[in-house]
C-alpha cells in the first residue's frame, strides 16, 4: 500500500545498487540504513521517512507501476520492455552500457558492414535468444524478417554456441563476455543507463515528491545528467 508519510523507493539488487545509493546521497536522502545490508529486503529509515525495497532489477518497474513503491531506480533496458506503465523522470547517468545484437565471431566478421545480410544468410525464421523479447521484436520488425524469439532469463551468450539461436540480443558493457564466448557485436540497438522512475499517482499526490526531486531537476536543467557522489 502506498503510504502518505513515507516515500518508498524500489532499488535494484546487484550491480546498480552501489551507484544508486551514491545518487541517493547526492539527493540528500540518507541511505546509511542500507549500508550494512543483511538479508532484509525492506529497510525502514524512520528518521528521514524513507523506506527502501530491495528487489530484482527486472521487478523494480512492477513495484513502482503497481504503487508498492513511489520511486524506483532501474536500467533503461528493463523500461524498454514495459513502456508507459511508469513515469521515466531522469537519466541518472550511471550503469552505462548498450543493447546490441551479437553473433558468432566469424559470421559477424563476414557481414560486418551489413547486418541485414547476416540475418538473411541464416535461413528463416531467424532464431534470436534474448532477455528482452519486446525490444528485440520491435527492432527486427524494421527488417521485415520472419523471426523466432527465444526468451531466456540469463546466460544468453550460450545460445549461439549450442545452436539454440542464430543471434542474441543482450546488454554489452565491456564486451568481455562476448569475447570469452567467441561472439562479436553485429548491430547497436540502444544506449542504456540507470533511470529514476515514478508511480504516476505518487508523482501527483505525494506531498514530499516536489521537494525531493528538486535537486535532480536543477541538475538536469544545468545540463549535467550525472549527479555526482
Amino acid at each position: 500500500m502506498m503510504n502518505e508519510e513515507y516515500v518508498t523507493l524500489a532499488l535494484p539488487k546487484g550491480r546498480l545498487l552501489a551507484p544508486s545509493l551514491c545518487v541517493l546521497r547526492s539527493l540528500g536522502i540518507p541511505s546509511d540504513a542500507l549500508d550494512e545490508i543483511d538479508r532484509r529486503l525492506c529497510v525502514f529509515d524512520r528518521d528521514s521517512g524513507f523506506r527502501y525495497l530491495l528487489v530484482r532489477p527486472s521487478d523494480v518497474v512492477t513495484y513502482v507501476s503497481e504503487g508498492a513503491a513511489d520511486l524506483g531506480i532501474v536500467g533503461k533496458d528493463t523500461l524498454l520492455e514495459k513502456p508507459g506503465s511508469v513515469y521515466e523522470l531522469y537519466d541518472l547517468g550511471f550503469g552505462r552500457c548498450h543493447l546490441a545484437v551479437a553473433a558468432e565471431k566469424e559470421m559477424a566478421k563476414q557481414h560486418c558492414d551489413n547486418p541485414g545480410n547476416l540475418y538473411r544468410s541464416r535461413g528463416l525464421p531467424l532464431r534470436i535468444a534474448t532477455k528482452y523479447p519486446r525490444t528485440t521484436e520491435k527492432h527486427f520488425r524494421t527488417y521485415g524478417l520472419d523471426t523466432h524469439i527465444i526468451a531466456l532469463r540469463g546466460s544468453i551468450e550460450l545460445a549461439p554456441l549450442v545452436g539454440l539461436a542464430d543471434v542474441i540480443v543482450d546488454l554489452v558493457s565491456s564486451g568481455r563476455t562476448l569475447k570469452a564466448n567467441q561472439l562479436a557485436e553485429v548491430e547497436f540497438l540502444a544506449d542504456v543507463t540507470a533511470r529514476l522512475i515514478a508511480n504516476p499517482v505518487s508523482l501527483k499526490v505525494h506531498r514530499r515528491m516536489g521537494t525531493l526531486l528538486e535537486p535532480l531537476r536543477r541538475t538536469a536543467e544545468a545540463g549535467k545528467d550525472e549527479p555526482g557522489c
Partner: peptide
Amino acid sequence: LADRDLVGAR
C-alpha cells in the same frame, strides 16, 4: 510522451 518517457522527451 505516450510511453511517459520524460528522458526521451527531454
